[in-house]
Amino acid sequence: CHSECLGNCSQPDDPTKCVACRNFYLDGRCVETCPPPYYHFQDWRCVNFSFCQDLHHKCKNSRRQGCHQYVIHNNKCIPECPSGYTMNSSNLLCTPCLGPCPKVCHLLEGEKTIDSVTSAQELRGCTVINGSLIINIRGGNNLAAELEANLGLIEEISGYLKIRRSYALVSLSFFRKLRLIRGETLEIGNYSFYALDNQNLRQLWDWSKHNLTITQGKLFFHYNPKLCLSEIHKMEEVSGTKGRQERNDIALKTNGDQASCENELLKFSYIRTSFDKILLRWEPYWPPDFRDLLGFMLFYKEAPYQNVTEFDGQDACGSNSWTVVDIDPPLRSNDPKSQNHPGWLMRGLKPWTQYAIFVKTLVTFSDERRTYGAKSDIIYVQTDATNPSVPLDPISVSNSSSQIILKWKPPSDPNGNITHYLVFWERQAEDSELFELDYCLKGLKLPSRTWSPPFESEDSQKHNQSEYEDSAGECCSCPKTDSQILKELEESSFRKTFEDYLHNVVFVPRKT
């Protein structure tokens, strides 16, 4: 048989008469490798580009789960590009990614509803959504962080984005990388972005840091009482949809009607710091009717980097990364020049730590249904340095008659930039024990000054392991946590139920 035959053949030295091919099969003959313009397919066939392209389009058009959109890589027609490569849609070739590779997620039936953290986790790592997304989240724990972890990498949506009755959302900033909504599939009414009845939605994105392009379709905003109209108009300008909307697409009466839409800028007039305090004062603000001013709200939190936005980490279910302080308005003076500047002394802060701070007014709604208010920009203030805590785990070892090696770990709280350490030492008198000992005694162990690591005695271990207080009263049991108490109650309830079950099964009433 021919060298490319495997198993047997019907005619000697003829690659077209093989029972099976050793390498690849091409047009009725066995070959060692697939010549151009053919590609290896499933490690035994040679196919042309049209064959591989037909497989790709067949799966793409069917949208069946589990099928493969075949691509070409290293002269092979394979189910998908290997790690580190992405497909070129024009020629199906796998090309190296520039940075992290995109991950295209194809949605069944063309859309997916995100109504819980669990459903959001199914899209973790996706960068391109081939379909439409509907966000409908009523509640949950730590929602802002969970949504950002699972949806934060999405850069492109081919269909539309719909935010509907998501009472738990305060902001859409968890879509931190969303840059493009194509609108290839539109919501009824030709809408590519749809926001309806979101009672706590206050911000779409921080438009000073976020760009969003909507290729096709219109915007729809109705019944978002805490979303200011200025935020919607800003989205029109940034996304390129200005002029597409009709009169009733953006409701003037049901958007922002319960919001404090600040239209003035508060400026800080005085800032002073110490290692654990920050004193702030800002310019006074009074609405047209000074009785509408209820006070100020001061927001602050630790910020290692200057990239904080107002609604980071917030949701309507209680999660809030900001510390909020309510401040009463100052006494009002008739003389504008003698107006008191409101302020606040922030206490209990960490030394040498940068804080993000902003302040906003708290006002009631005027009778004319106009909203007044003022808010400052987010500023960054760093507390002063102070003395560091003591170095940890000092170790001293003498390696000769004239040297001592000293080692330690950095302090747990540096409280500033540590530039150097101060080492103090003092000579001590020799131990009298060394002169009084009889060095001729056998088995004498000389006193040693070398360091030995501390260890816990058996008594201390027994005390720590004991669940009861000892007789001397030195140790006591740790208080039980809520989960331990709940577990004990469940076990007790189970024992009672099981005992009742045994009584009912074992003891049967005697027939009379």
Rank of each mutant, 00 (worst) to 15 (best):
C105A: 01
L107I: 06
G110L: 12
G110Y: 08
K112L: 07
T113A: 13
T113C: 11
T113K: 15
D115M: 02
S116C: 15
T118G: 06
A120P: 02
A120T: 12
E122W: 11
G125R: 11
C126W: 00
T127Y: 11
T127K: 02
T127N: 12
T127H: 10
T127I: 11
V128G: 07
I129S: 00
N130Y: 03
G131V: 00
S132P: 04
I134P: 00
I137A: 10
R138S: 11
R138C: 06
G140M: 10
N142L: 08
E146S: 03
E146K: 13
L147T: 03
E148G: 07
E148W: 15
A149E: 08
A149L: 09
N150K: 09
N150C: 10
I154E: 00
E155T: 09
E156R: 03
G159W: 01
Y160N: 05
Y160G: 12
L161R: 01
I163Q: 01
R164K: 00
R165H: 13
S166R: 00
S166H: 03
A168S: 00
L169P: 11
L169F: 09
L169A: 15
V170K: 05
V170L: 09
R176F: 05
L178M: 14
R179C: 13
L180H: 09
I181H: 01
G183F: 02
T185W: 05
L186R: 07
L186N: 02
E187D: 09
I188Y: 10
N190M: 11
Y191F: 07
S192R: 00
F193P: 00
Y194S: 11
N198E: 00
N200K: 15
N200M: 10
L201D: 00
R202Y: 14
L204F: 07
W205H: 08
D206P: 06
D206E: 06
D206L: 10
W207F: 14
W207V: 11
H210K: 14
L212Y: 01
T213F: 08
I214K: 01
I214T: 12
T215V: 13
Q216I: 04
Q216S: 11
G217L: 01
K218T: 15
F220Y: 08
F221T: 08
H222R: 13
Y223N: 10
N224S: 06
P225H: 04
K226Q: 11
L227M: 12
C228P: 01
C228R: 03
L229Y: 06
L229V: 04
E231M: 04
K234S: 07
M235P: 00
E236N: 12
E236K: 14
E236Q: 15
E236S: 12
V238F: 07
S239E: 04
S239C: 09
G240L: 15
K242Q: 15
K242A: 06
K242D: 09
G243K: 05
E246T: 07
E246M: 14
E246K: 15
R247A: 09
D249H: 03
A251T: 13
A251M: 11
K253W: 10
K253H: 06
K253Q: 10
T254F: 10
N263M: 10
E264F: 07
L266Q: 03
K267M: 12
F268N: 00
S269C: 13
S269W: 06
I271Y: 10
L280F: 07
L280H: 00
L280I: 06
W282K: 00
E283A: 15
P284A: 04
P284S: 04
P284R: 06
Y285Q: 01
W286I: 04
D292G: 04
L293T: 08
L294F: 12
G295H: 03
M297K: 04
L298W: 01
F299Q: 11
E302S: 08
A303R: 10
Y305T: 13
Y305F: 09
V308K: 04
D312A: 08
G313H: 07
D315S: 10
D315P: 15
N320V: 01
S321F: 10
S321N: 03
W322P: 02
V324F: 10
D326M: 03
I327H: 01
S333A: 05
S338Y: 05
S338F: 14
N340S: 06
H341L: 11
H341M: 05
H341R: 08
P342C: 15
G343I: 15
L345H: 03
L345W: 14
M346W: 01
L349F: 01
K350W: 15
K350I: 03
W352T: 06
W352S: 09
W352D: 11
I357L: 15
F358K: 14
V359T: 08
K360W: 03
K360P: 00
T361Y: 11
T361M: 10
T361V: 14
L362S: 15
V363H: 03
V363N: 11
T364D: 15
D367K: 04
R370S: 04
T371R: 09
Y372P: 11
S376M: 01
D377Q: 06
I378K: 02
I378L: 10
Y380S: 02
Y380H: 01
V381I: 14
T383K: 01
D384C: 10
A385V: 08
A385W: 04
T386G: 15
N387Y: 03
P388W: 01
P391Q: 01
P394Y: 08
I395L: 11
S396D: 15
V397K: 02
V397G: 04
S398R: 03
S398N: 07
N399H: 11
S402T: 15
I405W: 10
K409A: 06
K409D: 11
